[in-house]
């Protein structure tokens, strides 16, 4: 028996919108402490890791650990039928090949249930150890989205360089080059507007902008984003979900051959 009631249903809608274009289908792993998902894109270049802890749910019941394979495009179609103010409940029964999404309007005058077929997914699960990163940049998520979008109109790849001067995003393409430098800026009215650079050692790495732009679909989930880099590891782009967990994207770098 599985029953999860999320009063802020729009959160689940936003989560799906942020990952459905990167990953086609994924196993949702439910346990008593919450649910998680890990899935790579089809080219094995990028990975999404999602965690939503049980404390963030109004009601959370999961009698035994269970994994449900879902097509994210189909799940997104169903969640789009929920209103932004709706309460969403996810229900499942042991051994069933379906999952039910129930949508309740805030005034309880409209109740809908959508039953979705589950699928068997043979997904590769990667072990991602905790790492010490050379540099961690925390910045407004909208600013990061803007930079990725702007640079993608010039080039295909972004070089992200962190020094004690700041963080630099650079690209080059047929029409020219672009460099955007952000300096650490903590003297802002609201903490979410700050750019904070924690640097142990300078680092400079190259990534495909196509993936970075895909990650920025998670912007509505959080006012801030953190970008963690080490020269010998994939970059981690993390959007924290207030009180509940996170969506993390991992992206393998492009390296000089």
């Amino acid at each position: 028996m599985l029953e999860l009631r999320l009063v802020q249903g729009s959160l689940l809608k936003k989560v799906l919108e942020s990952i459905k274009d990167l990953v086609n289908d994924a196993n949702f792993d439910f346990s008593s402490s919450g649910f998680s998902l890990q899935s790579m894109d089809s080219s094995h270049v990028a990975l999404v890791a999602l965690l939503l802890k049980s404390e963030g749910f109004e009601h959370y019941r999961c009698d035994r650990n269970t994994s449900m394979g879902m097509n994210l495009g189909n799940m997104s179609k169903m969640l789009k039928c929920a209103g932004n103010d709706d309460i969403i409940t996810i229900k499942g029964d042991d051994g069933s090949d379906t999952v039910t999404f129930m949508f309740e309007s805030p005034t309880q005058d409209k109740i809908a249930d959508f039953e979705m077929k589950l699928m068997d997914i043979d997904s590769e699960h990667l072990g991602i150890p905790e790492a010490e990163y050379h540099a961690i940049v925390k910045m407004p998520s909208a600013e990061f989205a803007r930079i990725c979008k702007d640079l993608a109109s010039i080039g295909d790849t972004v070089v992200i360089s962190v020094t004690k001067e700041g963080v630099k995003f650079s690209t080059r393409g047929d029409i020219g080059t672009a460099n955007i430098v952000l300096r650490q800026n903590t003297t802002v009215d609201k903490p979410e507007d700050a750019t904070v650079i924690e640097m142990n050692e300078p680092v400079s790495m190259t990534f495909a902008l196509r993936y970075m732009n895909s990650f920025t679909k998670a912007t509505p989930l959080s006012n801030t984003v953190t970008i963690s880099m080490s020269p010998d590891l994939p970059v981690v782009v993390e959007y924290k979900i207030a009180e509940m967990g996170y969506v993390r994207f991992y992206l393998a770098p492009k390296m000089e051959e």
Binding site: H44, V45, H125, G127, D232, P234, Y250, P253, E256
Partner: peptide, 14 residues
């Protein structure tokens, strides 16, 4: 020339 690496070159299957 830059080549795109894969995550499986950094992380092992769990």
């Amino acid at each position: 020339k830059r080549v795109q690496l894969r995550l499986t070159e950094f992380y092992r299957s769990a």
